[in-house]
Design a protein around this nucleic acid. Structure first.
Lengths: 365, 365
DNA sequence: TAGACTACGGAAAGCGCTTTCCAACACGTT
DNA sequence: AACGTGTTGGAAAGCGCTTTCCGTAGTCTA
């Protein structure tokens, strides 16, 4: 029925050319686009042959011959984490608009894996790489990542980081610090005076920055954050749960807890609920994860435009540019909701009511 | 400082060979693995040269030369949807274990895009493709997908679907129908007698099957499901929200609502809450999305092992096999939680209490 | 010491494309 | 009739690898 291609299984351009009775060069020009013109009659013949044979150009071979690919890479920590899947969604949207395929690597929060994947994407000659996910305080891993990214760019690719400004590479710098600072300001504004922080992993810069920013905000408001009111834990729902229990176990009485991201905050609320404390202790998070929009009580958080971040990252790196690294700041906005109702003042006063959708003023710096 | 590669930017194997003073063949054998042995001394020299030059093999060229790739494709509807990101996580885990890269395409719930992406992955000569996400009732789109998948397999790749058994291709058949049927059985067992269904998009087979199964279960229990108690809507949180409002607007009084997936269920609960009905109307979902574990009230649902499904799918297709398509059935298990407390009987009786973690018996058929 | 292997480096032939040359041909000028 | 000037098809030279095939040396047996 069908002329099977040679040994490799797939139909090749040569098969098509032969069937159409033209040369390889002509077939290539007719099918895979070229500056050169081909007489309509011949082009049609070639296209028909390709259709007959169900021909699909070998993208790898094209890449080798053309010296460029249609693949971009995206390195995340964990694709199952909504933070990253939102970023991925944004990046993929832009990729689609540009006819690119996206190779996603999930590094499982291991810096070494991350570097390994960047290397793999370099081998694939990806046109661009987006590296989402926090750096850590591991100077050595950072240096190795830097080397790898550098090699990638030297070999003609373009990379962009999302997170901290730590390498001389295009970066979407997430304003974790100022976001957390603003949040602290708003929370103290609601009347809270004693705080706890569920701080995430020790070395993770995103967590570190958010903690630092929050502490800074409290300090400015003249509120102290004692050392043992800070509990480190995994950057996950279960991490937040455990950290909350640990915080309570330390016997501190806190009015309000800041979990450095939303999934931890949800875990914290769950922990409080099992103890019947969900109305006693206020909880705030960070990120404004969409999927978590319906938890009760609605989460006070710092909204990050994650999808947009993914889009911007890829766009940035696809756009031609002049050599030196660009740094673009992404600022979140504080969104006050029911999870931090505010402390009941001596005499009644309006309290930061729930805002069903993020509308708070943008923070800056 | 560093000998830049030729025009294309990247260092080539030839550069390495020259620097090591060996032939291209030897360099290839030393670096990129081969059956042939290379004297240790020479191998070391080559490796050193590669290191000096920061060489990274061109995977595309290797793919062309070897006739196979290290890339597998994953086609999903929407990577931001936790259903798919969990499947992706599973698939990526297996990919990592096998040294493969994963190209993910997000088809945005458009069947045409899906086909287009399969075609793109065929061009990339992906070793395997996992197509997650429901088929639709569009016979034409199904046929085109079939053709494309067939062409892919004929050209040497292997494909696996997740969802319905509708094509002669390896498939993980999700037991939507029986899962929904079991759910109906359990819910009627709790005493509910009047139901509504938020049914998802009309043509989406996953939604259709779940609706059909649920109706079947009710019928078996002798409970009627009137036509206008079924409201179709988007397969999303907002779709569930809107459908719930519509159902209420129809003036039907229902004791229990089945949303054909969890995200819709969450939307429904949100809608009920704004009307103060969250304790009046019970809600059940389907999927048991992890991220939604902490919504209040905890969701009764049918648990699907999504990560495992992703793993199994890729493993299945990576494993050699004998030609004819394999179909593997995935059954979920009903998990009763607080969102369906059961109707209060005339005299007190134990009510299906919340189960913090899925433990219900597995359904079958 | 001949004969038979075995080990291992290099030349060169692919892999499936793109793209540069080159040649043939058709026109329009002068 | 001679001469540009476009067009357009084909041959062949890449692209960066792998792998076959060949040849030289060294090792082992009898």
């Amino acid at each position: 029925m069908r002329t099977m291609g040679a040994k490799r299984g797939a139909v090749t351009l040569e098969d098509v050319a032969r069937r159409a009775g033209v040369s390889l060069a002509t077939a290539s020009r007719a099918i895979n686009g070229s500056a050169r013109k081909v007489r309509p009659e011949i082009r049609e013949r070639v296209e028909q042959a390709a259709r007959d044979l169900d021909y699909a150009a070998n993208a790898q071979a094209q890449a080798v011959a053309r010296g460029r690919t249609d693949v971009v890479g995206l390195v995340v920590q964990d694709i199952e984490d909504p933070y990253f899947s939102s970023i991925a969604a944004g990046a993929m949207r832009v990729a689609e608009a540009n006819g690119l395929m996206v190779c996603i690597a999930s590094a499982g929060r291991r810096p070494d894996k991350e570097i390994e994947y960047v290397a793999a994407l370099r081998r694939m000659r990806a046109a661009a790489i987006v590296i989402a996910g926090s750096r850590t305080d591991d100077r050595d891993a950072l240096a190795r990542l830097g080397t790898e990214v550098d090699a990638f760019e030297r070999s003609g690719g373009r990379a962009v980081l999302i997170g901290q400004r730590r390498l001389p590479v295009d970066t979407l710098v997430v304003a974790n610090r100022s976001g957390a600072r603003d949040l602290a300001t708003r929370l103290t504004g609601l009347g809270y005076r004693s705080f706890g922080v569920l701080a995430g992993p020790r070395g993770l810069l995103t967590a570190v920055d958010r903690l630092a920013g929050f502490a800074e905000g409290l300090r400015k408001a003249g509120v102290a954050l004692s050392r043992d009111a800070v509990v480190h834990g995994e950057f996950t729902r279960d991490g937040g749960h455990a950290a909350m229990l640990e915080l309570l176990a330390r016997g501190r009485s806190v009015e309000c807890v800041f979990a450095v991201n939303d999934v931890m905050a949800v875990g914290a609320i769950a922990a409080l609920r099992t103890l019947g404390l969900e109305r006693t202790v206020a909880v705030a998070g960070f990120d404004d994860i969409t999927t978590l929009r319906d938890v009760i009580p609605a989460l006070t958080t710092v909204r990050l435009p994650l999808v947009e971040i993914g889009e911007t990252a890829l766009e940035m790196v696809l756009r031609e540019h002049s050599g030196r690294p660009r740094y673009q700041r992404i600022v979140g906005e504080v969104v006050l909701r029911e999870s931090t109702p505010g402390v009941r003042p001596a005499h009644p006063a309006p309290v930061g009511a729930a805002e069903p959708l993020p509308t708070g003023p943008a923070s800056s710096t």
